[in-house]
Design a binder for these strands. Structure first.
Length: 314
DNA sequence: CTGGTCTCCTGATCGC
DNA sequence: TGCGATCAGGAGACCA
């Protein structure tokens, strides 16, 4: 589901509901959506491990899921969120004892965080979300739910600042503000296709299949171009195109292709402005030429053979 | 190290 | 109406 604009829209919509709210109770309906310290790095959703290693003490799990703590902020880098919470009464003279921990959230393809006001109900929508609620947090004014039909999403317990830092440190610069120099550093010497590089979260964090195609179209660069062969002008155009594409999408609340909704259940509108994504075989919005489709990095890729020439200018 | 391929999972859609 | 094939916004594991 979500790339950076969608994740940021969720973060913004969720923040006022969570800030200063204490987690009264938490229910984990599926253990395998949660990664605890000591679990295999990818989580055991992908590990095909024996069932007898699944359970962890429910008390420990509740603490990792922030029970009893009060939300202080939501951080984001690329497509990753960290819900940060702390103990309510901290001793002013002993800030180091101030107990703060976080919960990392990957939404994957179909992950969904939503705040349900008290008395409200989870709407029946695409993806049959109500059948795939894996975690419920009870708050004073309602409930926060994590639902994820395809279960590619993950929650990661981040009990210490070191673990939180590590969670974000594996990511490249946030795509919303990526500079030409940062992008150039990520592409230098790379022989893979530029689109594959953009999808690599260590190169630039937050770009997925939709916005990779959109940004490459805006920059006039063919997705199959070897990343390391791009000249300085092309890299500058691309960095700007990434920022502008993501900002425009964010301003429209993201793209709702099928089941994306923000944390209030609202759809985004940016899908109405896609120039290439999902438009293979249709006319280019700039020149009218029929848009081409191919596969790059196992992902469907759409581009214009005329507006995105083999050899990028610059 | 790098880059390409496979895989995890459910649901929507399309052709027959 | 039903059924199988195909595809989907992500990314970790594995292999050459």
């Amino acid at each position: 589901m979500p790339e950076l604009p969608e994740v940021e829209s969720v973060r913004r919509a969720l923040t006022p509901h969570l800030l200063n709210q204490t987690v009264l109770d938490v229910r984990l309906h599926r253990r395998d959506v949660l990664v605890l310290p000591g679990d295999p790095p990818g989580g055991f959703a992908r590990q095909r491990r024996p069932a007898d290693r699944v359970p962890a003490s429910s008390r420990g799990v509740s603490a990792h899921l922030l029970k009893g703590l009060t939300f202080t902020r939501i951080d984001r880098r690329g497509k990753q969120l960290a819900l940060v919470a702390a103990t309510l009464d901290e001793t002013p003279n002993a800030p180091d004892t101030h107990a703060e921990r976080a919960l990392g959230v990957h939404l994957g393809m179909s992950g969904h965080l939503e705040f349900i006001p008290a008395g409200g109900r989870l709407p029946d929508g695409p993806g049959r979300l109500h059948e795939h609620v894996h975690v419920t947090w009870r708050l004073p004014r309602g409930s926060l739910i994590f639902a994820d039909p395809r279960r590619f999403g993950l929650l990661r317990a981040l009990p210490t600042t070191a673990e939180r830092d590590a969670f974000f440190a594996e990511l490249g610069p946030d795509a919303l503000a990526v500079t030409t120099d940062e992008l150039a550093a990520g592409l230098r010497g790379s022989r893979r296709a530029i689109k594959a590089a953009l999808l690599d979260q260590a190169c630039v964090a937050g770009v997925g299949n939709i916005y990779a195609d959109e940004a490459l179209f805006l920059a006039g660069i063919r997705p199959t171009t070897t990343a390391g062969s791009l000249g300085p002008d092309a890299i500058e155009r691309l960095a700007r195109a990434i920022r502008e594409t993501l900002e425009a999408a964010l301003a429209s609340g993201g793209s709702s292709i099928r089941d994306y909704r923000d944390a209030n259940g609202h759809q985004g509108q940016y899908q109405l402005q896609h120039a290439v994504y999902g438009r293979g075989g249709e006319p280019c919005v700039k020149c009218g030429f029929t848009l081409s489709s191919c596969t790059v990095a196992q992902r469907t890729t759409v581009y214009c053979r005329k507006c995105q020439p083999e050899r990028a200018v610059g």
